[in-house]
Write a protein that binds this DNA or RNA. Sequence first.
DNA 1: AATTACAAAGTGGTCTGACCACTCATAGTT
DNA 2: AACTATGAGTGGTCAGACCACTTTGTAATT
Lengths: 214, 214
Amino acid sequence: MIPNNNSRKMFLEIVKQLRQLIHDENIPVGGKLPSERELAERLQVGRSTVREALRSLELLGIIETRRGEGTFLSDFRKHQLVELLSTFILQDSRSKKDVHTTMHALEKEAIRTICLTEQLQKQSIWDAFIDKLQEEMFQEDIIREIIIISNNRLGLKIWFLLKQFAGEPYRSLMNVKEKEAWKMLLGNLKVGNEQQAISNYNEWKLLMNRGEIK
Amino acid sequence: MIPNNNSRKMFLEIVKQLRQLIHDENIPVGGKLPSERELAERLQVGRSTVREALRSLELLGIIETRRGEGTFLSDFRKHQLVELLSTFILQDSRSKKDVHTTMHALEKEAIRTICLTEQLQKQSIWDAFIDKLQEEMFQEDIIREIIIISNNRLGLKIWFLLKQFAGEPYRSLMNVKEKEAWKMLLGNLKVGNEQQAISNYNEWKLLMNRGEIK
DNA sequence: AATTACAAAGTGGTCTGACCACTCATAGTT
DNA sequence: AACTATGAGTGGTCAGACCACTTTGTAATT
């Protein structure tokens, strides 16, 4: 008979199978998962093992549980866990720097993609953003919109993820210089001037860093 | 008496208290945590509750457990969480194009970082690579080395992950033109010429794509 | 005295069964 | 028709029991 002496961690196996199950049954975001008891029976493990896997995914913000109702697939953007992680994990400045560097890489790539793709430049949204610059506005929203428009869904998701780990790298309020940098950046984005746009981006980043040092 | 049947999730509370405990007792990376049974008694909860919290932290790569030995504070720079989340994320966006775009973003950022950091340019490894170009060599190895030297461990981790999903984007054999492009790229890398290096990179990428189309 | 072999204690891994607290649908009552 | 009570289903927690594994101490052997 096959020994059940798994050197592997069972609960990790369950995590894996849960992922498979979610995929196979095509459970949508917000959809309901089978109950813990049913999962235990279907996967042929104890309920406590199932729970360990579920609790892990819950801490990651992948699922959401409501007592008396059930377990639901969550929109992982909502997780509150990340602030926990930042206090737990990202005390290391090396890691923080890595997160920022990687985010910047994704942001720049989005700008490049947009500049090099004619259809993406014609979006009238750039003008709208330039107009909105006068009001109070979240810089983060602009960045996000840029990445969204660049149409790299994977990059966007990774960026979201990192943003959550990075804490608050983007201040919401802008001073005059920052607004000016944004205006130029958006303007160059509109006409597809890659070199200039990247240059503007770097300038803006410099302004941001100075602002943080203050 | 104080009712502890709060609507709050107990296991989240335990996670919080574990963090406190690790801080208070100043447990170093690699250090040993109290046993599950001891934690259960100290925190006045059941062992299974403690386990749910511990399993969550384990999935996040914050702790490491070894059967028969104990639970240890892990080197969380391993970023296991990113790996996990990525496998979840990549289910619904397996667009190869997105994967490639994101990989290129990371590669370019590595090149930029190296160009802008003097210490990284002095590595004699570039000359070694230029020499090796004559022989049969894996382009993938050069790229990887570039990212490693750029010292962004998170980026490297993500890059590795994406490479797995991307299949085989980098052919191992190089023709004359590709070798020439690499030679220039490495040369510019050595002296920190960012603009030219990125330009070389783009040229090389173009050559790669043509080769694939053939 | 040194080495080996074995037993015991300690630890994480898993399962079972039992409650509790909560939500919801529904049968029953007014 | 509106309201109420009930029970089924679900997650939350606990206690106790094994198992598999590692470490450690001790007794037996050399």
